[in-house]
Every structure is written in C-alpha cells, then in structure tokens.
Amino acid sequence: MSIATIFEIVLAAVVLGLGIWTIVVRETYSATVGYVAYGLLVALIWVRLDAIDVALTEAAIGGGLGGVLLLGAAARLRDSEPTVADAPGKAVRVCAAILSALTAAALAGAVLVLPDPAPTLAPAAASNAWATSLANPVTNVLMAFRAMDTMLEKVVLLLAIIGVWSLTPDSAWGGRPGPRHQADPHSVLVFLARLLPPIGIVVGIYIFWTGANHPGGAFQGGAILAAMWLLAIMAGLADTPPVRSRWLRLVLIAGPGLFLVVGLAGLLFGAAFLSYPPAQAKPLILGIEVAMILTIAATLGLLLAGAPERSARQ
C-alpha cells in the first residue's frame, strides 16, 4: 500500500467522522464549524480526484461563503435554540433516522450498480475542444457543451437573491441590507480591509482569466471578489448598496441576461440555441464570463448581506 493510498484512506475516514460529528453535535455553532472544516477537507478529496475546478469551488462556496452564511444563521438562532421540550418526539426521530438510512442505502446501491467502465462523454468533449479554442475542458463543458445548465444555474442564483429580498419588512423595502458596520479606523480589521482587497481583486481576476486554459473560472473568481467586497463592508469602509439601486439590479441580471442574448443570437443566426460560431467562440465565452463574474460577485455578496433592514438614507 503506497503512502498516497494510506493518506486517502485517512482523509476519507476523517471526512466521514467529521460529517457524523456535524450531525450529532448539539450546538448549531459547533455544527457550523464542523461543516466548514468538512468543506475544506472535501476540497482536498476533489484535489486527489484531479478535479481542481471542483476543489476550488468547494473550498470557496462549501468552506468559505457557505460557512459564513451558516455562521450568521447560527448567531441569529442562538437566542432561540430549541429547548428540550421543543425537541421532536421519539417517533419522529426514528422515522427521520429510517428515512436517512434508506436514502443513504439507495445512494450507495446506485453507486455500486454503476456500469464499469462508467459511461462517459469525456472523449467526445476532448475531441471537440478545438471548437472553442479554450484549453480547460471544464470551462469547455460549462460554457459551450452544457451552456444551458450553466445559464440556468445563474438564473437560480438570481432566484435565490429574490428569495432573500422577499423577507424584507415593508418599511425597509428598497433600503440597504445588513447593519451599518462601524469600526475603529485604527483597528486590525480595517487594516486588513485596506491591505487585502487590492491583492484579492488581482487574484480573483487572475483565477477567472486563467480559467480559459487552467483550473479556475468565473465562479471561483467571483467568490473571491465577493469576499473582498464583504471584507470592506464588515470593516465599515463600504456600505451595502440599497437594493432599489438600478445599477445594482443591472449587475445582478448582466450575466444571465447576456447569456440569454447570445443564446438567442445562436438560434437566429447559427445552428441552435446557445451555439457559438467556432471563430467567435472564445471572445463570446469570455464576454459572457466577464458579465458573469460581476453578477456572481454581486449575488454572493448580497446573499451573505441578507435582506434589507434599514432605509437607504441611513
């Protein structure tokens, strides 16, 4: 058994243990911390599987932004942790356990009966890579061969932000999400919020740009840009924009909007919906991705900022 195999077995065991611990532990806060660590370790597993693109996304979303979102939820829930009296009865818990066990067994069964070798479209994707002149096969699949899925994914992001905004109380509608953070201008957080964003913006754009040929892309880059924006907001250097701002709404629909326009142009002038002419494929894909990285950064930032709580003037 090689060292790599031992490392993989240990990694899988730790991830399983952490997953079980996250479910079993009682406090919401501890479960969230466990979940963040779980996300980072799952990213390591994706690296071992040579899926660097997925690993980057898992680390940024599963470990990073998702963790912050859950931490915020845990902080809000702290005052209303369910007491022993509210806890579900034994029958409910047994039913939930049986349902979970059945789902896990069905998933395990489905994985075990997969044909070997698994049916794959990878050779077809690789042999048609010339059509887009992008060297990263993941970007090829996401932006060209399965562009429809990616476009719908961006629409889902838009729906998510509408869902968050729909929790706004009437008095705050059109206002700014979250509290106005005030920080001592000489504090460490403000120092970091001044020092890190220039570096983070460069890294975010680099990860987006390199996504054409290497692991990376608009989602991972957008997550980093969103993190930089949130850092400035949390340090009180910037304020969240009022949700009635027309510019903000334009940025939110820019990605899926441009995607849809290009798709319809393909329907009118080309072979099918979302078909790009090979000669213009790369500039078209890059254009869509530029709009998408802005949309993703704004959407992820606003998802974390939450529903508007105060009027735009404050």
């Binding site: 460490v188 957080l189 970091l192 020092l195 890190l196």
Partner: peptide, 10 residues
C-alpha cells in the same frame, strides 16, 4: 502570514 496575524489579533 497576513491572515493568521490579523485573525489572531481579532
């Protein structure tokens, strides 16, 4: 280094 130093201060 930057992240570790800042977060530990906070």
């Amino acid at each position: 280094l930057l992240a570790g130093a800042t977060v530990s201060q906070l």
